[in-house]
Design a protein around this nucleic acid. Structure first.
Length: 265
DNA sequence: GGTACCTGGAC
DNA sequence: GGTCCAGGTAC
């Protein structure tokens, strides 16, 4: 915990969130940053922004979401194993990527992209899916060239040239124990805060009007969510910036990943 | 300066 | 609802 970092007990955080709710609409404190709704709440709580895989506030993690938004909630980041392969920058982006939409405009003409939001429910239109292998105790990424939609036939021909049309070998994976550590160390207990958003003369304002307390994150529930299709693995790289590989969940399913949840307001 | 995290989007 | 995408920082 860095010096000066605000810390809260559970009761203290509940009280502070109630005070913030009573403040009504509050201007975005981070202009131009898509994370404004979360950053603004962190500022109100006096929590310093941090990128370490530790909870934001003592043992309590904060999750913020815009009401009415279909955006997925990011649970945690973790690059797949074996790490030495460096799958995203060395395999997925160069061999399975495609020209970025803004290549030659916002970015260099050679800019490539590999963005995939995939689950265990079925393959994406580029043939990627997530598999929960309970025998091997691994979550792994699978590529099936037969599942690629015809609209990507040019891309598939390039994949054939660069990598061949077969299953990934080796397949990227996360061991159950690694996932339990990544998730458990960060998400064991969480507050899920939802904000109404309004725009006013070009700026955004947030009303943090709903909060749920989530206790005891469950790896079994995460794995079941992957299989049912409410939890996703999200690859998120372009040539100039790998935003990292994320585990994400549909916001309405977030509470189901915890053993207990309690609506605060 | 590259990698791996953080916070989140629009169409 | 799936596809594709964003600005930041720690080390």
């Amino acid at each position: 915990m860095p010096p000066g970092q605000q810390t809260f007990t559970k009761e203290g955080l509940i009280g502070k969130l109630a005070e913030i709710e009573a403040m009504g609409f509050i201007p975005n404190a981070r202009h131009g940053n898509h994370g404004g709704v979360g950053n603004t709440l962190e500022d109100l709580l006096g929590i310093e922004e941090n990128n370490l895989p530790i909870p934001n506030a003592a043992e309590w993690e904060l999750k913020t979401h815009r009401k009415g938004s279909a955006s997925l909630v990011t649970l945690f980041h973790s690059e797949p194993s074996p790490r030495a392969v460096r799958f995203v920058p060395r395999v997925l982006l160069p061999l399975y990527g495609w020209p970025h939409q803004q290549a030659g405009a916002k970015y260099p003409a050679t800019e490539r992209s590999f963005r995939q939001t995939i689950s265990g429910a079925g393959p994406s239109d580029r043939g990627f899916k997530v598999v929960v292998d309970r025998d091997a105790r691994k979550v792994l990424i699978s590529f099936d060239p037969l599942s690629v939609d015809s609209r990507h036939h040019l891309w598939l021909a390039q994949v054939k040239e660069r990598a061949g049309l077969a299953e990934l070998d080796p397949q990227p994976y996360w061991g159950f124990d690694d996932l339990a550590h990544d998730a458990g160390s960060k998400l064991h207990n969480s507050f899920f805060v939802e904000a109404e958003v309004k725009r006013e003369t070009g700026r955004e304002l947030y009303h943090y009007s709903r909060a749920t307390m989530l206790s005891a994150f469950s790896l079994d529930r995460l794995l079941a969510g992957i299989e049912s299709g409410v939890v996703y693995v999200d690859f998120d790289a372009r040539s100039g910036h790998n935003h990292g590989t994320k585990f994400r969940v549909r916001s309405d399913a977030l509470p189901m990943l915890y053993e207990q949840n309690k609506r605060l307001f």
